[in-house]
Design a protein around this nucleic acid. Structure first.
Lengths: 213, 213
DNA sequence: ACGAAATCTCAGAATCCACTCAGAGCCGGC
DNA sequence: GCCGGCTCTGAGTGGATTCTGAGATTTCGT
């Protein structure tokens, strides 16, 4: 909670704490920025008019640094232009003062819910496999789209990271009919071409195993 | 105001107009539905027994289409079961005839107050979807009007920004009966034509996902 | 060092899927 | 009742994907 008002801030913190949330209060933008960059928050509620660093600026900086937490602006600036500016800076939601307590709570709940089921990621070395969007996320955060078969093959491997799968097993799990056995080799080749040599490890004489991104 | 009684309807409209509200009267459910889908009302007062389309059905349809306006039922059906059915259909409040004028006014005020700061701007990349006015606001602040179906489709996608929706899911959520599956493709095409290629992202073999404006 | 087996690489054919868009039907506004 | 926008159908097109198969290359036992 980044809020400089000495009455409102502590009140909101207590309100949220009563709901069972673990909340920290930052009284200015500088401190808010520092906390957000050093702690893995699930959601951040930010006032727009702040000392030291403005709320808009704060959020923009967080987004530039890739902080994934959901952000909710809480402010008196309520015109459509203000809202669009706030959302543009990277906030997920925008609540105009004065507001109803019940609504703030509802929005925080929504923010956390969205944040939680946003992605279903299978870790893979330094990167991951996003099973909702069917893309691989490389260690450098770059996303690589995968075709259907490519995804399914990597999915089988990534679901059991240390297990070694034989070609026959992979073929029957991933491919429809009964294509040539070399089909697995071909798709391992495609995956390596897109994701790097180490994406899939070969276990000679046996088959393949998930690697690292 | 959706009210078929030729005396009560105009009387209520005048009453509300005297309070300073901008009111439109629809004498049957069909007309009420159309108006509600094409105009950004803040609140809708609905009689339950209506020609053409029943009040309950009307409200349920509005909710399915994501119309955010607050709804107040005004009806002679006053049992507990009636009320539950009305609220379940998606109404915010329920007033049984005969009623006091002052109470109707108070309830309408409450409806509007609650409704005022409900979510109305869904972020979408650098722009947003204005769910009250049913227009898209591009990153450059330019506003693009959307047709009913276009809006509904984008609304479903924008409400869950990272989620991937299958064609079947989108079709059943946005389109009434059971049109050809390609209907979704067509409307994605319309949206992209109006809002730019990135407005909707394709996940090949799966479906679509909200993009950026 | 040699040969055989295993694996890798990749071009090309067949197929699938999404995109595009013209046009018919519908509905409301004038 | 006519016009204009909206909705929906259906078909053509082209790019992406899937799969085959055949060398090239690597690995490993001897």
């Amino acid at each position: 909670m980044v809020e400089d008002d000495p009455e409102l801030g502590p009140m909101l913190v207590e309100l949220l704490a009563d709901e069972g949330y673990d909340v920290t209060l930052a009284a200015d933008g500088q401190r808010g920025l520092h906390l957000a960059l050093t702690t893995a928050y699930d959601a951040i509620v930010v006032d727009r008019g702040l000392p030291a660093i403005d709320g808009l600026d704060l959020v923009a900086r967080l987004r530039r640094r890739g902080v994934p937490a959901g952000v909710l602006f809480l402010t008196a600036f309520g015109t459509v232009a203000d809202r669009v500016a706030g959302l543009d800076a990277g906030a997920e939601d925008y609540l105009v003062k004065p507001f109803e307590v019940a609504e703030l709570l509802a929005r925080v709940r929504a923010l956390l819910r969205r944040h939680r089921d946003a992605a279903d990621l299978l870790p893979l070395g330094g990167g991951a496999l996003d099973t909702h969007r069917r893309v691989a996320v490389l260690a450098g955060r770059r996303e690589v789209p995968l075709s259907g078969r490519e995804f399914e093959l990597l999915h089988v491997l990534a679901a059991r990271p240390r297990m070694v799968f034989g070609r026959g097993e992979l073929r029957s799990r991933v491919f429809e009919d009964a294509p040539a056995e070399s089909i697995v080799d071909t798709y391992v080749y495609y995956l390596r071409r897109k994701l790097g040599r180490d994406a899939v490890r070969t276990v000679r004489g046996i088959g393949y195993q998930a690697g690292a991104l």
